[in-house]
Amino acid sequence: MTHRNLALVVVQRIGAGALEAFEVSGRTALFAIDAFLSILRPPWHLAELGKQLIRIGYFSLPVVGLTAIFIGAALAINIYTGGARFNAEQFVPQIVVLGITRELGPVVAGLMVAGRVSAGIAAEIGTMRVTEQIDALRTLSANPMNYLIAPRVAATMIVLPLLTLIADVIGVAGGYAVGVTTLDFSGPVYLRNTSDFLEAGDVAIGLWKALVFGFIIAVMGAYHGFHSAGGARGVGRATTNAVVSAAVLILAANYMITTLVVK
C-alpha cells in the first residue's frame, strides 16, 4: 500500500467515524425530544407511572442514602484537613452544606440512580425489543413512546429531585457525624453554622440539576434499550452503553448548569 493510499484510508476512517458520531447524536437528540413531548401528550398511563415511581424512587433510597452519608463524611474530613493549612478548619459545616446541596447531592444521587435505573430501563426495554414485545404493543394500538417511555421518564424526573433532597439531608448528617465525633465540633454550633449559611437558592440549584439528570438517566436507558438488537448480547451492550452515556452526560450537564448559574 502506498503512502497516499494509507493517508486516504486514515482520512476515510476519521470521516466515517465523525459522520457516525453526528448521526448517533442527532438520533439521540430526536429521541430525547420525542420522549419529552410524550410526557406532555395524552394518553397518560397513570398506573404504569405509579409502578415506576415505586420501582425507580423507593427502591433507590438505600443506595442513595448510603453513598450520601459516606460522601458527606469524607468531604468533612477533607475540608478540615485542607482548611487547617490556612486556619480555616472552622468552616467545615458551611462548605459541607454548600458542596452537598449544590454539587454532590444531585451528582451522587444522579450517578447512583444512573447505575441502577438506566441499566434497568435499558435491559427491560431492550428485552422487550428483542422478544418483539414492542412490536406487539404497536399491534395492540399502544404507542411504545406513551406506554413504555413516558412513564419511566416522568417517574425518574419526579423522584430524582426527591432523592436529591434526601441525599442532601443525609450527606450533611454524614459531615455532622464526623464533625462532632472526630473533628471536635460542638453539635449545636455545627448545626447552627450549617443552617445560618445555607440559602434556599443552593438547594434549588441542586434540585434543578436533579430534574435534568433524571431526564438524562431515563432517556439514555430508554434510547439504548429501544434500539438494541441481536439477542442477549445486544441487550447487554445496551445496558452498558446506557449507564456509561448517562454518567458522562450527567457530569457534563452538571458542569454546564454550574457554569450557567455561577457566573
Binding site: P43, H45, M128, T131, E132, Q133, D135, A136, L137, T139, L140, S141, A142, Y147
Partner: peptide, 26 residues
C-alpha cells in the same frame, strides 16, 4: 390482530391483563 412467533407476551402483566391489553388501554 397479530400472533407473534415467540408469543411476545408482556411479562410484567398477568395473563388476563395481556389478553385484555387493548380493551384496557385503548
Amino acid at each position: 390482530g397479530m400472533l407473534f412467533q415467540g408469543a411476545a407476551l408482556f411479562d410484567s402483566l398477568t395473563v388476563w391483563e395481556n389478553v385484555a391489553f387493548r380493551l384496557l388501554n385503548k
